[in-house]
């Protein structure tokens, strides 16, 4: 698993439009194995669009997505999930009317054989989910839902997890917990593509970052570089 510096995901010149609205105008980026890469940008910059086009939710108009040296451009989302990419959607995307365990099993929908072992693994990681396994997900707190969404991603046996705006609507303490979990997961070998409004925290956590504006990458570099970049400091860090 630890073949460092090997590119696991490569997005090359991807264009995506919703009707007449161009959401992505030639985005290129890559994630190396074992990296946490953060996407930074205002609302509407295209962070979610990038994740959804990688996942194959929308067909991109142009460009290619390569995962583990295989062209996965415009495969359907369920096929992408089988390849080892899983999205933790913005707003968690937890199924509120279903139990915690049902939500977890949905993550393993394509691979139920190993579900038991996976359940033990995620319960170990998130004991609170084990306690609430038979509870309806709609009754969970925001932080617990985020944990459930991440745990569901782990159930799918992914190699890369995309996490879209995990901190939205959560108290600072919970956000720190979630970020700690992401760091742990990364240490275990998962590659992570993160989109985040909390730029400071995200850059502190990640290895590299891409700054997006209106569907284009305008800046990229290591997180250390980005943290001291004057434009970034002015636009996102309030300095």
């Amino acid at each position: 698993m630890n073949r460092q510096n090997e590119t696991i995901l490569k997005v090359d010149d991807v264009y995506l439009s919703y009707g007449h609205v161009e959401a992505l105008k030639g985005v290129s980026l890559e994630v190396k194995r074992g990296e946490i890469v953060v996407l930074v940008g205002a609302n509407g910059a295209g962070k979610t669009s990038i994740m959804e086009s990688i996942l194959g939710v929308y067909q991109s108009r142009k460009g290619t997505v390569t995962f583990k040296d295989k062209n996965v451009t415009n495969l359907s989302a369920d096929k992408i999930v089988r390849k080892g990419i899983y999205l933790v959607p913005e707003g968690r995307g937890v199924f509120a009317s279903m139990t915690v365990i049902d939500n977890l099993l949905l993550g393993a929908h394509h691979n139920l054989k190993n579900a038991k072992a996976k359940l033990t693994y995620v319960y170990d990681l998130f004991p609170i989910l084990s306690e609430r396994r038979n509870q309806i997900a709609g009754t969970l707190s925001g932080g617990e839902r985020q944990m459930l969404a991440i745990a569901r991603a782990l159930m799918s046996n992914p190699e890369m997890i995309m996490v879209d705006e995990p901190s939205i609507g959560l108290a600072p303490k919970i956000v720190s917990d979630i970020f700690k979990i992401l760091k742990e997961l990364n240490k275990e070998g998962y590659s992570i593509l993160l989109s985040e409004q909390n730029v400071y925290k995200a850059l502190k956590l990640s290895h590299r970052g891409y700054v997006l504006e209106t569907g284009k990458v305008v800046l990229t570099g290591t997180s250390e570089e980005l943290l001291i970049n004057p434009e970034i400091r002015k636009a996102y860090l309030g300095a």
Partner: peptide, 26 residues
Amino acid sequence: TRAGRAFRAIAEDPAGAKLVGIPILK
């Protein structure tokens, strides 16, 4: 069952079900 779980997920949120890798058409 697995199929029933997918039925209920799509019933609650078709877009969300797609995001978590449930084959909608099938």
